[in-house]
Computed example of a mutant assay.
Amino acid sequence: MLDTAKHAVRPEHAPSDHPAIPAAKVGVLLANLGTPDATDYWSMRRYLNEFLSDKRVIDYPAWKWQPLLQLIILTKRPFTSGAAYRSIWNTEKDESPLMTITKDQTAAMTAAMAERYGDQVMVDFCMRYGNPSTKSVVRKMVEAGCQKILFVPLYPQQAGATSATANDQFFRALMEEKWQPAARTIPAYFDHPLYIDALAQSVERAYAAMDSQPDILVCSYHGMPKRYLLEGDPYHCQCQKNTRLLKERLGWADDKIVTTFQSVFGTEEWLRPYTVEHVAELAKQGKKKIAVIAPAFSADCIETLEEINEEIKESFEHAGGEEFTYIPCLNDDAAHIKALMAVVEDNLKGWLD
């Protein structure tokens, strides 16, 4: 952690009683979805309430959605979600894997930025839902002297329910600052050559460790209502392009890779094909050995460690599938950090020498 008192100085020509001010620096704020603080009922309820009350996530009118959420969903779902989180919880550190991995990513980015820029840059992370909150980390960065902040949602593809809501929260935090820093946000980076290369390397490593090759690679992206696509959200198109770029980088034929969508919620139609159904169909078609990767997630979390590696795997095996391999997210892999550094440096141009 940065010692702001150590770096604070009295401005030149200021009177002797003028308070010390931290040296100006640039902040790089990484942001991820979020995590409950614990797996008990009330911790899960607080987290789910914040998440499912976000209009970017569930855009139904409040009069219609909130009674259903508060009286029915939040009465039952904290128990099932808590059990799911307990199955993957990092008991050694008493935190979710997403928290552990995001801390590791932040440490790697801090080291890389320090090597490149010395003490000109402060790197930290926040969560859209839960802790550390976006507001608290923006406040910390401002207090540390960050007069410019680059906000980096860790979502390769742009979507209203991910990067857009993270940006919303960042700007809300800025609204409360009297000395407001200059601010930038990054665009989607799903097509950045270094990101595609990092994904491809992870697939190549996984395949090289197998005795025989999978029949197909399933690229499973987080789903969203189909209606969002029709309303102009670019996420679906960017997911499709992400898969195509990965296929081209690997040099594969079209029938060796497929795009699917997971985590369906509610009754309306979501983006198809649904991963949990499609893997079962693949097994019935005779594709008995598959691998699954999740390019929409920068860090392993409940949707990958529990949903993919348990629920989706079970669907495949019950339909006659024989070998299921989950390829982990890029997490703090060196190639991933290199890609994120390239994205960050592209967006810091003009702010740092």
Rank of each mutant, 00 (worst) to 15 (best):
D119M: 05
I196V: 14
L29E: 09
A164G: 13
N49H: 12
A144Y: 03
E311K: 15
L29H: 04
S136Y: 02
E248V: 04
K55E: 13
E204M: 09
P273L: 00
I101L: 09
V142Q: 08
P97D: 06
L330Y: 00
T75Q: 14
Q213A: 10
N331E: 10
E277P: 12
A107F: 08
L48D: 09
I58H: 01
H7G: 12
G130Y: 00
A335H: 11
L230F: 06
Q201R: 15
D233C: 01
G145K: 05
P132K: 01
I149G: 03
V138I: 07
M44W: 01
Q213P: 10
L2A: 12
S81N: 11
S16H: 10
L154A: 02
D333W: 02
G232S: 08
L68S: 06
F324I: 06
V123W: 04
G160T: 15
L150C: 04
T91V: 10
L150P: 09
G118I: 04
A294I: 07
L217T: 04
A299L: 13
M341F: 09
Y47Q: 07
K140E: 13
E317C: 09
R128A: 06
N167M: 14
I216K: 05
R249M: 03
E50Y: 01
T185Q: 07
P36L: 00
T35Q: 03
S81C: 11
V276E: 11
